[in-house]
């Protein structure tokens, strides 16, 4: 995880400090609560407990129980309350304690939040932000470790982002809070304690724009969330073998920045997609299809490859858990095979 520190730089001349991903989210929430009294937070144990990952830790003391609301354990109800409040002019930021628990709230997210603007002919706005701690690697097993972002990205009306760095965690969250439509943010739990440079002031990272984290000539590795860091580490190892990999941090699953992807693959002529969510029908399939349907297809010197979560629930035993999601060596091996053997 050490690679994280080096991949972000803040805006030119801005005062950046190295802070954690969790602190960056905390800072974004605090600044949004200060700047706009319509903004409020709700979720399970986000008050004095501070949230399961301490992201909201002292906010209830600063802003009060009226704006940092501990809900009962009622995910469907809390999601519906957030939708109703958003419809009536407030700006809710809903935290699911674990993204897995959003399965209890799919009705409100998919049938209501995502569709209201459209169903009502453009006459309604649901400015709702949903924060989703996600991912494997904590030993919490199958019901606390999933990566379900592709589900949400399949729904027209939702926007889905997946920040990989503290800088983007803050900037994408503030952009999401400004957004007039529902935005779902997937935060990988293993990233919360990682650090990186973050400007002290409020800033926005645009939703729908990928970032090239490492320019390269031989292959495009498109990664999401924590896989950006594993891809960067794999790229360093590939450099030792004489291969120059370009690493793209997708950042946004919906809208998808196909222009950046097509441009990159046109230059590198090879594509490897890497994500932690299950490979089958995952975002890598969509990216592959977007490239196959574009002019970049004719430039390919090798088949497109995907790495994703294994076709199983996330298991408990450490060796199994590790085997269920792509690791640095998997990325290195797949990329090297594409470059060296064209397969």
């Amino acid at each position: 995880m050490n690679a994280i520190v080096s991949i972000d730089t803040g805006p030119e001349g801005a005062a950046c400090r190295d802070i954690s991903y969790a602190d960056a989210i905390h800072e974004a929430l605090r600044s949004a609560l200060e700047a706009d009294e319509r903004v409020f937070l709700l979720g399970e144990d986000i008050g004095v407990y501070g949230g399961a990952f301490q992201v909201t830790r002292d906010l209830v003391h600063r802003f009060g129980e009226g704006r940092v609301i501990d809900t009962p354990i009622a995910e469907l109800g809390a999601a519906g309350v957030a939708v109703g409040a958003a419809l009536a002019g407030s700006r809710p930021v809903l935290e699911f304690q674990f993204s897995d628990f959003a399965t209890l709230a799919m009705e409100q997210i998919v049938n209501q939040a995502a569709k209201l603007r459209y169903m009502l002919g453009g006459n309604a706005s649901v400015p709702l932000v949903i924060r989703m701690p996600a991912g494997a690697g904590t030993g919490a097993a199958a019901q606390h470790s999933q990566s379900l972002e592709a589900w949400f990205a399949h729904v027209p009306g939702l926007k889905v982002v997946q920040p990989a760095t503290p800088h983007d965690a803050k900037g994408l969250l503030l952009a999401a809070i400004d957004d007039p439509d529902p935005v779902v943010i997937f935060e990988h739990k293993l990233l919360y304690k990682t650090t990186g440079p973050v400007p002290a002031e409020a800033y926005r990272v645009p939703i729908g724009k990928a970032a090239i984290r490492r320019p390269g000539r031989d292959i495009t590795i498109v990664a999401t969330g924590i896989m950006v860091h594993r891809a960067l580490e794999a790229a360093e190892r590939l450099a030792g073998r004489g291969h120059d990999a370009e690493v793209i941090d997708l950042r946004s699953l919906r809208p998808l920045d196909t222009a950046t992807l097509i441009d990159s693959v046109t230059r590198t002529t090879r594509l490897l997609c890497v994500h932690e969510s299950v490979k089958m029908l995952g975002i890598g399939a969509e990216i592959s299809a977007a490239i196959a349907e574009s002019a970049a297809f004719d430039r390919l010197d090798a088949p497109i490859r995907r790495l994703g979560g294994a076709d199983c629930p996330i298991p408990y035993a450490p060796g199994l858990e590790r085997a269920a999601v792509p690791q640095v060596e998997d990325i290195e091996a797949a990329a090297a095979r594409l470059i060296e053997r064209g397969e």
Partner: peptide
């Protein structure tokens, strides 16, 4: 579907 939305709209009324 409308039940929690109504509760949420009422929460917004209180906040505002």
């Amino acid at each position: 579907g409308g039940l929690p939305i109504a509760t949420g709209a009422a929460l917004a009324i209180r906040q505002q």
